[in-house]
Structure formats: C-alpha cells, structure tokens
Design a protein around this nucleic acid. Structure first.
Length: 459
RNA sequence: GCGGGUGUCGUAUAAUGGUUUAUUAUAUCAGCCUUCCAAGCUGAGGAUAAGGGUUCGAUUCCCUUUACCCGCUCCA
C-alpha cells in the first residue's frame, strides 16, 4: 500500500491536497494521469448503464440541496450518531446502541441527547470493557456537511452539501418520468460528488470527506424488486471483470446482516475487494423498498404514486439501487493493476514495475518514441504522435535511452509503445509496436498503424 | 473526536546541540554519447512539516499546531 501511495504521487495519479500549506486532512487531488483514469472509469460506467439501455436515463443533480431533502431522507436523524466515551477506559460507544441492547429499541427511539444521558445513569449501564459507570456527556456528530447561502446576516440560511447523490434522483423522479415518456420499470443514473463529515478517514483515497458516486436507482413495481435486484448484482460483477478488468479472485459479494443495514435498506449486498488491509467494500447494492419516495411524498406533500396502466394499479414505486464510489473504484483498479515483475537473468536481473490496466482503463493508450533523439527520427515520431493524439491519449517521449522510456510507460500502464527507428525512414516505412505485458514487438507499417491500434484498443 | 506511532530534496535514506555548501542513491532537467528494454560521462535545480520556547548557538531538547499510519466508530 505504501508503495502504491508513493507511486501514485510520483507518477501523477493522486496528490495530497493543499500540500504546500501543510496538507488538508483526507482530501486528495487527482493529477494528470489520475484524471484520465477517473474519466475513463466514469465513461465506461456511463456507457454501460445509460447508453446501452433504453430504460435508463441520466441526470446531474447539484451539490447544494434543499434542507428538507435530508429530513425526508432520514439523514438529519440517522446520520447523527450519539457518541459517548467511558471516562475510565476511554472506550467509545454509540449511546443509542448500548441502551437499545439493555432496554429494547422502543424505549430509546426518539429520545433527545440529554434524555439519553440521563437514561445511561438511571439504568446503571456499565462499560462492557471495564465495568465502570462513568460516562462523558453524549455528543452528536452530524455527518452532513453544512454550508450557508446568502450574503447578509438576514438572508443567510443553512443548507447541506448532499450526503449522497441518490436523493437528487428521488426528488427528480417525477420530472424524468414526465420529460422522457419512460414508464415503470425504469432507472435514473447519476455521477456526482457527495460530502460527509466522517469521524475518521482512512486508507489513502478509500474513505474521504468529499467523494464521488456513480449510481443508478431503478424504479419498479414491488413484485419485480427481487428479480431486478439479482440482475443488477450480477451486472455489476460482470462490469468489474469484463470492462474494468479486475481479477475475479480479488472480488466477492457480501450480504449485510440485518442489524448493519442502513435505515432505508430491506436487503443489501456489497462487492468487496481483496485489499492490502483486508476485504474492502466499494460497491453497494440495496433493495430500498418504497422508503424513499414515500418519505419525499410525506415531507413535500406531493403525491409521488405512479399509475401503472398495464396493471391498472396506483402505487409508490420500489427502488433497487446500485451505487459505487469513483475514488474507491480508482483505488481498486490501481491496486489490482500494480505488479512488480522480475525480468532478466543472472547479473541483469531487475524488477519491473508494471501497471496492468485493461486497455479501456489505461490513462495513456499509446506512447510514441523515437529510438534516439535525432532530428530525423523525432520529426517522424512527432508526425505519428500528432495524428494519433486526436483519437487516443498519447505521450511523446524523447529523453534518455529507449529501454528507460519503455519502463516509464510500463509504470503508468501504457498498453503500446510505438518506436520509430532508422529503418522506419530509410527502408520499410514501418515502426515497432511493443506490447506492455509480453514486451514482444511487432513491425507495423506506418500507414496501417492507426487501423492496427483501433483493432487492439477499441475491441 | 479519543488512544498509540511517525514526519530530513519528487522517492528512499545518512548525520549532528556548533567546523565553511546537511550525506548518499534514485528520479527530474540540460549537454555529450548511444541503432530496441532502467548503460555511461559532465553539469544543474531540489529537503530538516509549520509556529513558538530553552540556548551564545536547535534539523537535534521542550511545547503547540498540522499531516500521515494503526485501533475505536462510520460509510460508497
């Protein structure tokens, strides 16, 4: 993992944010290659989900959102954890959880923080770690990030940066339904940023306070929910293996236990990745039932029922959600692609760092290299570069030995290196194309190069 | 937020309460050389996380802040 962090910074994938001011906790910026990687991942997902299907529409909801949305969604309540510490052994607990264990859910629900504090004392709840009854006051951590809108004091009001993207889908459910002539079942997809005041952040870009989600909410009749839920589960796994190229062995499903499900979920699965710090979830599938639209109906006073012509039935649609973090997908993609290989023999033995990104994911597709820094070679290589870079992200590198430049490209996962040598201009009008994984070379006519690359890269 | 650990060029590192320019490797840049897998030579730029204190003198000792890592907790 440390190797990956160092590599990511050195090669321009991920930088710690605001580094010159001493850094900014758990915020990271994407560098020149990181932004290419991210945009490839997003494009692949979008095409796979929105373009390929008639029954999915895209939207782009905004980050600044009406505070009511978060009351309806349950986040203002359930994203506020009442935390309490044992003064004696310093262990931290969720106050509501330990009270629920003793007293049952009913007695705890709806209580204020001071009431919970009193209950801890009155019921003589002891710390299960050290047995002491010596609690700090209960403090609440609202995970929603606040900001304020308005210039003058009188105008100012608090709004929330959205804590998840899906709520902007739910509040646009009616709009999309009306402007697209979709009928149930159908889905709405979105890629966008969300924000949470996480208590702690962790593992490089794995958990950050600002993060981007790609997700799709599928609206349907309650009777169809289970089937679609299974369908999207298998579609996601297929996407990861076939489009992104993640090793099957490093992926698994894990079903949530009932008690760990979010407040809206009827059933939940995660896709987890076999990371250096253990299995890590990065893609959630939730069967949300009709919770969301029901709540927004309730809080907005708007009737969000759907009239189903075929069934001749009016109902609140159920929602099947598939949702993944862009940063987490990028991290998983980088972890899975990172390889160190021993090459050469005897004294010449050395380690090659190579990122085995799938061709669709690789930030740079082609590197064009003159064999040496000679004007006549550079002239031709630049012509080739100028032609290819209108279609593919390319690099042109003339410095130092050819072997070194191959290694540089290996380290950023470029699938193909095109080398212009003296034969190219004197004899055969052809170039060598070197494959990243096999390091094998193939001679290709310059005029056929683009077609050759198209076949390899677009298939 | 709590507890524990860490912080020296981009990366990996050496050293020291005081001696001129803070070591070395690698990477980067410039030049020379070089006809396909990190070759060589010459040169250049680049660091004691930030602030304060003790001291004649602090990268070194102390304090505060900050960032990262490990746990608690939480999620995509």
């Amino acid at each position: 993992m440390d190797k990956l962090v160092a590599w990511a910074k050195q090669r321009g994938f991920v930088y710690p944010s605001s580094e010159i001011y001493g850094g900014f906790a758990s915020i990271y910026d994407y560098g020149p290659l990181g932004v290419e990687l991210i945009s490839n991942l997003k494009e692949l997902w979008w095409k796979n989900v929105v373009w390929k299907r008639e029954d999915i529409e895209g939207i782009d909801g905004q980050i600044l959102t009406h505070p009511k949305i978060w009351e309806a969604s349950g986040h203002v309540d359930s994203f506020t954890d009442p935390l309490v510490d044992c003064k004696s052994c310093k262990k931290r607990y969720r106050a509501d959880k330990i009270l629920e264990e003793k007293l049952g859910v009913d007695k705890v629900a709806g209580k204020t923080l001071p009431e919970l504090s009193l209950m801890l004392k009155d019921e003589e709840i002891s710390c299960e770690n050290c047995g002491a009854i010596d609690w700090t006051d209960i403090r609440s951590f609202n995970l929603l990030m606040e900001c304020s809108i308005g210039v003058t004091e009188g105008e100012k009001r608090t709004v929330y940066l959205r804590g998840e993207t899906c709520q902007t889908i739910f509040v646009n459910f009616e709009n999309v339904l009306q402007s697209t002539r979709q009928k149930l079942p159908f889905g709405i997809a979105q890629i966008g940023k969300a924000f949470r005041n996480e208590i702690t952040t962790k593992n490089f870009i794995y958990r950050t306070r600002e993060f981007e989600q790609m997700e799709m909410q599928y609206f349907l009749h309650p009777s169809e929910a289970d089937e679609k839920y299974e369908y999207w589960k298998s579609e996601s796994m297929k996407f990861l293996q076939e489009e992104i190229g993640i090793d099957k062995e490093n992926l698994r499903f894990r079903q949530h236990e009932p008690e760990e499900r979010a407040h809206y979920a009827r059933d939940a699965y995660d896709i987890e990745y076999n990371s250096p710090w253990g299995w890590a979830e990065f893609w959630g599938q939730h069967n949300r039932g009709d919770w969301d639209l029901k709540r927004h109906s309730m809080f907005s006073g708007r009737d969000l029922q759907y009239f189903d012509q075929e069934r001749n039935e009016k109902y609140i649609p159920c929602v099947v959600e598939t949702s993944l973090g862009v940063g987490r997908l990028a991290l998983v993609t980088m972890l899975d692609a990172y390889h160190e290989e021993e090459i050469g023999e005897g004294d010449k033995k050395e380690t090659r760092v190579v990122l085995k990104f799938s061709k669709k994911v690789a930030p740079i597709k082609v590197a064009v290299l003159p064999l040496m820094k000679k004007d006549e070679l550079v002239k031709v290589s630049r012509q080739i570069f100028d032609k290819l870079n209108t279609k593919y992200a390319c690099q042109h590198d003339v410095t130092q030995s050819i072997g070194k430049r191959y290694r540089r490209q290996d380290e950023i996962g470029t699938p193909y290196c095109v080398t212009v040598d003296f034969d190219s201009i004197e004899k055969d009008q052809a170039v060598t194309v070197r494959d990243r994984d096999t390091m094998q070379q193939e001679r290709v006519k310059i005029e056929e190069l683009e077609k050759w690359l198209d076949e390899k890269l677009l298939s």
